[in-house]
Amino acid sequence: MNDRQILDFEKPIAELEKKISDMKDFAAGANITLDSEITSLEEKVEKLRHEIFTGLTRWQKVQLARHPRRPYTLDYIQLMMTDFVEFHGDRYFADDKAVVGGFAKIDGRPIMVVGQQKGRDTKAKLFRNFGMMHPEGYRKALRLFKLAEKFNRPVVIMIDTPGAYPGIGAEERGQAEAIARNLREMAVLKVPIVIIIIGEGASGGALGIGVGDRVFMMQYSWYSVISPEGCAAILWRDAAHAPQAAEALKLTSEDLMELGVIDGIIPEPPGGAHNDHRAAALAAKNKIMETLGELEKLPTEQLLAERLEKFRKIGVYGE
């Protein structure tokens, strides 16, 4: 793991952990026991981690959501599901690699899974366009949602995007229209839809695959009308004010729970999902299974009425 993959506020923890692993190596090599020293250091790490993570600012949580080692959609699919068959293309223009999807099984139960996909290294980042979808991506997702409806499979969606792609081609092919259509069609799709924000949920780019029956957020993900940088560039006229914008936008999972916009927070393993992909995926999977169980009991009419009401009631105003 290189230094770039450790965030500033993670460094004290990483240093202690390094010390522990050095000590273990030394003890093994010298054939002596340092068990009590190691245990005491391990306790110290836990305490330090707890201290740091309970005092995180919103901006630091944004950094965690963007952590270079954070699990992405395909990691979750691999860890939560079996028999994934990936489908490609929107049938009109192209296959958008910033979004992946297809049939899969979760505990043997067939579902449709769709999610935004980021790349891990530079080449993969470019291939995935940093998880920023074009109109053909939203149309690909809608095609898969309609397939799910046709074959009566519930939909599981993972959101992780810094925004819909702002480019010439995206505008030419109707980025706004593609997102708007998804909002309307997802509102009346006749199968259960469960959504998890696993990393970044930026703006219409996230919401464009984000209308459903239950919306959950991983503990250290964010979801907002605009990225902190975008907001800072407009309201502070300087993207460097992103930390202040992050505070003002109230974009963490706790914030959205308090605002009544999401249905629950999925706890991440100590230190964040990147420290233990398997544990993060298990927590997400448990939430999905529990939720599908609830939703599948509802008659379609009630499911759709409740979905509409869920979004209909969001908003704070005086009258």
């Binding site: 909002l183 009346v188 919401l207 009308v225 936008l249 109230k250 509409l308 908003g315």
Partner: peptide, 17 residues
């Protein structure tokens, strides 16, 4: 922007209706 996620959700609310 000043209503952040609540503003974003108005897109879903109006489109659903």
């Amino acid at each position: 922007m000043q209503e952040s996620i609540l503003s974003l959700m108005q897109m879903a609310k109006t489109s659903a209706l």
